[in-house]
């Protein structure tokens, strides 16, 4: 199979040249773009939850979730809401882009992967349905146990409803706010259910409401993807990062398949620890720079938000480098 047209660069910065094959309205204020490789070859593989950086002809770069079929390497699909306060992303796509136009895009990255679980609850608000849609399709194909709670301002504004209705299995609650009010989160998030993963994507108030109800749950039980990650919360690609030891200046590379604690130990650091599972808090280390990705079960929400300490046994980094007081 031919490969997609590539704009030479370095490693992960390598860009793909795409062409808009179709542009279709799918709900009030929502269009989909079907994109193919400008060179006609196969596009890179991706998995449900993945997104791409789209570089628009006006120079603006925006992130969009892929919402088509991962098995179809000939095309990618994204859904774009015309945001009222658009600063050149969705406004440009809705008013300027046409079939045949060329775009540049990054390789797909997935910070919101679908993990194995016994049961799933998906909570989508508005255009937040896009990363969840391919997850539902995958789970339906495997007869998995899933439920979707999908809210939007009105039925006309909610994209992909008919496509969701065609999926086999699962329980779907479509909740237009003008008919049913806000999503009944209390009913479906009344307690942590072992074996169930909750995925949430939508506007910030929805994510905060879901987070509020899941605060005491074990780390990892709630997976969420925000529409507009701020610079502070911008997630890195899953994978390696560097730790800088402030006292010696030494840099330690943490590979994707190794814990930070283990990498630091391999580099000669001695860090008191016990559980190596994010429960005891013994390996607590001060963070001097960078943004930790907390995966422990013991730091408070305030400590997580402050980002001043980290448990290297299970946690990682959202920034390329994490500077620790070691």
């Amino acid at each position: 199979m031919n490969q997609a047209a590539i704009i030479p660069a370095h490693g992960a910065d390598e860009q793909l040249l795409l062409k808009i094959d179709r542009r279709e309205p799918v709900a009030d204020g929502v269009v989909t773009l079907i994109m193919t490789s400008a060179g006609g070859g196969a596009l890179p593989a991706w998995s449900p939850g993945a997104h791409i950086d789209l570089v628009l002809p006006n120079g603006v770069t925006r992130q969009y979730s892929l919402c088509g079929d991962p098995a179809d390497r000939s095309r990618w699909r994204i859904g774009v809401l015309h945001a009222p306060a658009s600063r050149g992303g969705s406004e440009y796509i809705h008013t300027q882009l046409r079939a045949g136009d060329a775009l540049k895009a990054s390789h797909p990255r997935n910070n919101f992967p679908l993990e194995p679980a016994g049961r799933y609850l998906f909570i989508a608000g508005g255009i937040g349905i896009t990363p969840i849609l391919p997850m539902l399709a995958q789970l339906s194909a495997t007869n998995a146990d899933w439920r979707l709670l999908y809210g939007g301002r009105s039925a006309r504004s909610m994209a992909f409803v008919e496509e969701i209705a065609r999926l086999a299995g699962g329980v779907v609650d479509i909740c237009p706010e003008d008919e049913n009010g806000l999503l009944d989160l209390d009913a479906c998030l009344s307690g942590h259910e072992p074996g169930r993963l909750v995925y949430c994507c939508g506007p910030e108030p929805l994510i905060e409401a879901v987070e509020d109800r899941c605060r005491s749950w074990p780390a990892g039980a709630l997976r969420k993807e925000r529409f507009s990650p701020s610079e502070r919360h911008a997630p890195l690609d899953p994978g390696e990062f560097d730790v800088e030891l402030a006292r010696s200046g030494q840099r330690v590379r943490v590979p994707a398949d190794q814990s930070m604690l283990s990498a630091l130990e391999d580099a000669g650091c001695t860090i008191t620890n016990s559980c190596r599972a994010g429960i005891c808090g013994t390996c607590l280390v001060k963070v001097l720079a960078g943004i930790p990705e907390h995966n422990d079960d013991i730091l408070s929400d305030q400590q997580r938000e402050a980002g001043e300490v980290v448990l290297p046994c299970v946690s990682r980094s959202r920034t390329a480098t994490l500077v620790l007081d070691l």
Binding site: G191, H192, P218, I279, C280, G281, D297
Partner: peptide
């Protein structure tokens, strides 16, 4: 020092 009584889990002991 972190308090292990605050460890995250379910709500089973809340009451």
């Amino acid at each position: 020092m972190l308090d292990t009584k605050k460890v995250r889990g379910g709500n089973g002991l809340a009451s």
